[in-house]
Design a protein around this nucleic acid. Structure first.
Lengths: 249, 249
DNA sequence: TTAATAGTGTCTATCAGACAGTATAGT
DNA sequence: ACTATACTGTCTGATAGACACTATTAA
């Protein structure tokens, strides 16, 4: 606290002190997409290019200010729809970020911003909406979750750290909660579900043990359909019949 | 969304729509205190009495507005110190609450408030500061966490729901993280630690199994001291040597 | 027939819960 | 000696990881 007014930017700090902090909502939207580099699907997320300073031209999480007549979650859904055209079924609050120096480049004064960040999981069908979608599509693009911003001078604001935190939360939650289905379609094979786990956790899983564990979950019901078209024995399709969204955290 | 402007309070809603949402910080402070009703220690928390409308005279979580030059966590610590005199060593963000109708009694218009809520665990020695402490002590009092506000027309705002959510988070986190020590002093017996778990989880635990599990945690080191003064065989005192605060969530 | 994945069975180490049994203090 | 709690040992059922083995399709 005592170092707060020290340093070359003291004038900016005291200037900012006059303004009340403003509130913004951002969202980390995870989708599983096949990656050319790796043979297996990996985690991707849509980012929007900044058209204004600060960080003009750099990539940032979709988001915007909080309107006065909507709840936090409604604001997240609206911003998502407006900026990327997505309407994810799974949406949960991640964290409120309120550090002092996150709204501007170091040394440039601007208003203090507190961001309430949500995270979402979308299916491939939902993710396609983005590709065909909006007019401003050239300013929205998918990036790999683990490397977004790497060779481009980094992401805007503290969004790289926010994504890393969201990745950590996704991994933690996947291990004890039933959320992997939100990456997949209505029906899926156990191998597809295992690919989700492997992509998120970053390590291979034993197919036999994975099958045994998942079969003990009553919410995963086998259908009488099989996935045709593969080169080999067609796998059975399963369906998730549990609640669409689990309780918070 | 379509029902937002319906109903008898539409005028208030549109009035609020002109104002930007304001930001507040509140904190749920848990302490373990012996309870007269039950023989065992139970969870308590300090509440402050509202001196202004809305909810004047009712009990509320300690908190206040966010100053422009402090981080969210600093704001939580400052509000805590000012309202209750407490300086907890364990402090973590709980959730950001931003529903439309949480800042006022139903039917009374007022500005929209978004609250970022922190939760804290304090030791008995820290908790005593409150008793002797501040001048406005008559407006600060300890309440049982599970029943606070029950026979008094309820707590102010949505604070009863916030406390219930914090209780749920505390129970969840206790089961997989090393946080129970923050309720205890520098050294403690395994029976005391077990009492913390039993009070938080609300169920008895087998002393033998609890001992075996805790002994497999290297951060819990036995001292060569024993707790004298009991009526029976003196138990060994242990010390927690891990990091003071674990990573977020 | 072969390749490749789907799916089953089984062995083992680990661990949580239950609980019997021993140790040691105050009274 | 008695009692209450501290502390240890052991049995059992459940489960995760490793991995051998069988089944079924397309080419």
């Amino acid at each position: 606290m005592s170092t707060l007014f020290a340093g070359p930017f003291g004038a900016n700090v005291s200037e900012r002190a006059q303004l009340p902090p403003s509130l913004a909502i951002s969202t980390v939207i995870f989708a599983l997409k096949p990656s050319r580099d790796v043979g297996k699907p990996t985690l991707w997320l849509p980012l929007v290019r900044r058209v204004k300073e600060p960080f003009k031209g750099q990539w940032a999480l979709p988001g915007g200010p909080l309107a006065a007549t909507e709840s936090l979650e409604d604001a997240a859904r609206r911003n998502l729809r407006e900026t990327t055209g997505l309407a994810p079924e799974y949406l949960e609050q991640l964290y409120a970020f309120g550090g002092l120096n996150r709204a501007h480049r170091p040394g440039q004064g601007s208003q203090r911003v507190v961001s309430i960040v949500y995270w979402a999981l979308v299916r491939p069908t939902e993710a396609e909406l983005l590709v065909e979608g909006e007019a401003e599509a050239e300013n929205v693009a998918w990036h790999r979750a683990d490397t977004a911003g790497d060779g481009e001078g980094g992401l805007a604001f503290d969004h790289r750290e926010i994504i890393d935190y969201a990745l950590w939360r996704l991994r933690s939650k996947l291990e004890y909660a039933q959320i992997a289905y939100h990456f997949l379609g209505e029906t899926f094979t156990l191998a597809q579900l295992r690919e989700v786990y492997e992509a998120v956790l970053g390590r291979p899983l034993d197919p036999a043990n994975f099958r045994r564990q998942l079969k003990s979950v009553p919410q995963i019901e086998p259908t009488d359909q099989f996935l045709e078209g593969g080169k080999h024995r067609p796998p059975r399709l399963y369906r998730y019949t549990g609640p669409a969204q689990r309780s918070t955290t």
